Simulated scan of single mutants.
Amino acid sequence: MARILVVEDNPANMKLVLFILQKGGHDVLQAIDAEAGLRAAREQQPDLILMDVQLPGMDGLEATRLLKSDPDTRRIPVIALTAMAMRGDEEHVRAAGCDGYIAKPIDYKALLMHVERALAQ
């Protein structure tokens, strides 16, 4: 069982991701914006972060850049959750430091596959 931080501002998406991860046996932490996500990452040191890209205020890519530049959080894998599914978007999120990319709408099998792959590294 891993501790996974989900940073997501959409209540329906948060509920879905929580359900999938908890059914997969994971302990889930929640944050509804980037600032709360950064705080939780530093304080809780999760095994993995699922980061929505489009967040109010600071976006998820900037939050990821901050996490990856901080010695206390840089080792935590970050998977982007995003509605951006155009050509080049995956490269854009990876350039920000994300270790993976999941397009919305979220497919539960794909989510669990990406989570297990990230945790195994």
Score class of each variant (00 low, 15 high):
residue 27 D to E: 11
residue 103 A to D: 09
residue 58 M to S: 05
residue 99 D to Q: 04
residue 79 I to A: 13
residue 90 E to R: 10
residue 70 D to W: 03
residue 94 R to S: 05
residue 60 G to M: 13
residue 57 G to Q: 02
residue 50 L to C: 02
residue 48 L to C: 02
residue 8 E to T: 03
residue 33 D to L: 01
residue 29 L to D: 08
residue 72 D to W: 05
residue 42 R to Q: 08
residue 64 T to H: 01
residue 109 K to I: 11
residue 12 A to H: 12
residue 53 V to A: 07
residue 95 A to M: 04
residue 49 I to S: 10
residue 57 G to K: 10
residue 114 H to K: 15
residue 51 M to H: 05
residue 105 P to F: 06
residue 6 V to R: 00
residue 98 C to G: 08
residue 2 A to D: 05
residue 116 E to Q: 13
residue 101 Y to Q: 10
residue 34 A to Q: 09
residue 3 R to Q: 11
residue 6 V to E: 07
residue 73 T to D: 05
residue 86 M to C: 07
residue 34 A to L: 01
residue 91 E to K: 14
residue 77 P to D: 12
residue 95 A to P: 04
residue 52 D to S: 15
residue 3 R to S: 11
residue 64 T to I: 01
residue 85 A to F: 06
residue 2 A to T: 06
residue 79 I to T: 08
residue 76 I to T: 05
residue 106 I to A: 09
residue 48 L to V: 08
residue 94 R to C: 09
residue 114 H to G: 06
residue 22 Q to W: 02
residue 76 I to C: 09
residue 1 M to R: 05
residue 97 G to Y: 01
residue 17 V to A: 00
residue 30 Q to R: 10
residue 45 Q to I: 13
residue 121 Q to R: 10
residue 89 D to V: 06
residue 99 D to A: 07
residue 69 S to P: 05
residue 96 A to P: 14
residue 84 M to S: 12
residue 24 G to W: 00
residue 55 L to D: 14
residue 85 A to T: 13
residue 73 T to I: 00
residue 99 D to C: 03
residue 100 G to W: 04
residue 72 D to E: 13
residue 91 E to N: 04
residue 108 Y to W: 04
residue 46 P to A: 02
residue 103 A to C: 15
residue 68 K to C: 11
residue 90 E to S: 14
residue 65 R to N: 12
residue 9 D to W: 12
residue 111 L to N: 07
residue 81 L to S: 02
residue 48 L to G: 09
residue 70 D to Y: 03
residue 53 V to M: 06
residue 52 D to C: 15
residue 1 M to T: 14
residue 55 L to M: 04
residue 121 Q to A: 15
residue 30 Q to H: 07
residue 22 Q to R: 13
residue 18 L to I: 01
residue 81 L to W: 00
residue 24 G to N: 09
residue 69 S to A: 12
residue 59 D to S: 04
residue 50 L to N: 09
residue 57 G to R: 10
residue 24 G to A: 14
residue 98 C to K: 01
residue 78 V to M: 14
residue 22 Q to G: 09
residue 1 M to I: 01
residue 66 L to T: 11
residue 79 I to D: 01
residue 86 M to T: 13
residue 36 A to R: 09
residue 71 P to R: 04
residue 65 R to Y: 09
residue 38 L to D: 03
residue 13 N to C: 07
residue 14 M to G: 11
residue 5 L to D: 10
residue 91 E to H: 07
residue 84 M to V: 11
residue 112 L to N: 02
residue 81 L to N: 03
residue 31 A to C: 11
residue 23 K to C: 00
residue 55 L to R: 13
residue 25 G to N: 09
residue 116 E to I: 02
residue 102 I to M: 08
residue 12 A to I: 08
residue 108 Y to R: 13
residue 38 L to Y: 05
residue 90 E to W: 06
residue 36 A to C: 04
residue 102 I to A: 08
residue 103 A to K: 06
residue 119 L to V: 07
residue 27 D to A: 14
residue 96 A to F: 12
residue 95 A to E: 15
residue 39 R to T: 12
residue 85 A to I: 04
residue 26 H to W: 01
residue 7 V to L: 01
residue 29 L to M: 08
